[in-house]
């Protein structure tokens, strides 16, 4: 098991700070979802958690240790990342793409061990891509492609997975497919999952823990029922809404209103 936390994190681009003294602890073995309006810094936070960005101040701690002090390959054996719009190298097959995830477990000597082969096989099965494994990635549909990327992260075999908007540009069916897959990874394999999602209602349905970001700080966090209320949504998104209970899943359901209504 692996814990991930941010400790008084300040960072940004150029001279503009995006995150300001942000502290956050992510619950182990759960699905955490970062939500917030555009430009609030949730993607930046995810990148910082994945060590893609260097903090100006503060630190990200993985298993209690500064993530930047540890060898990046060792980190990659604990934490995998799916960026927002990943681009596959041209002409690569699904199996090869998934195999890339094994890099942190390989060395110059051992470039394709039996463990590697097993992990790739399992990742393909788990994501339902075993039939498509010899196809080239660019021939896949959007949903299949996203599953291939997730399979790569699965093959990396890490207790922690970070995903930046894994459902963007997918239609509703494929959004559900991807989220169901992540839930099964969490329930069956005990993986800690941290992701950014745009759709508040899907976030509520699938998250164990919601982190609402506003202006570079953690505005609220906790169970969806506790975080997603009418007042909070107004503070986070500057949007009037009503929050009711989803009649089927009993999670909060946010119904947005226009400016004039409500």
């Amino acid at each position: 098991m692996a814990t991930l936390s941010a400790n008084r994190l300040t960072l940004g681009y150029q001279r503009q700070a995006i995150l300001r003294e942000l502290s956050l602890e992510l619950p182990e073995g759960r699905i955490s979802v970062l939500v917030g309006s555009n430009g609030c810094g949730k993607s930046t936070l995810l990148k910082a958690l994945a060590r893609l960005l260097t903090p100006w101040q503060g630190q990200v701690a993985l298993e209690g240790e500064d993530i930047r002090q540890r060898p990046t390959k060792a980190v990659a054996r604990t934490l995998s990342l799916l960026p927002q719009h990943p681009v596959a190298p041209e002409g690569i097959s699904v199996r090869q793409l998934v195999g890339l995830g094994r890099h942190p477990h390989q060395s110059w000597l051992a470039q394709w061990s039996e463990g590697d082969e097993r992990a790739v096989e399992q990742a393909l099965l788990r994501t339902g891509l075993d039939d498509l494994s010899e196809q080239r990635v660019e021939t896949l549909s959007g949903g299949q492609r996203q599953r291939a990327w997730i399979a790569m992260a699965v093959a990396q075999d890490t207790p922690l997975m970070l995903l930046d908007e894994p459902t963007s540009f997918l239609d509703l069916t494929h959004q559900m497919e991807v989220l169901e897959l992540l839930v099964s990874l969490n329930r069956d394999a005990g993986k800690t999952i941290v992701m950014v999602l745009h759709d508040l209602n899907l976030a509520c349905r699938y998250a164990d823990h919601i982190v609402a970001i506003r202006e570079g700080r953690v505005h609220a966090q906790g169970r969806p029922q506790a975080v997603i209320t009418r007042e909070r949504v107004k503070e986070i998104f500057q949007l009037e809404c009503r929050v009711i209970e989803d009649p089927f899943f009993h999670t909060p359901l946010c119904i947005p209103f226009g400016k004039g209504a409500a």
Partner: peptide
């Protein structure tokens, strides 16, 4: 040829 983000992700 991998994106920087992906490459860092796999160490």
């Amino acid at each position: 040829p991998l994106d920087d983000g992906l490459a860092v992700g796999i160490g």
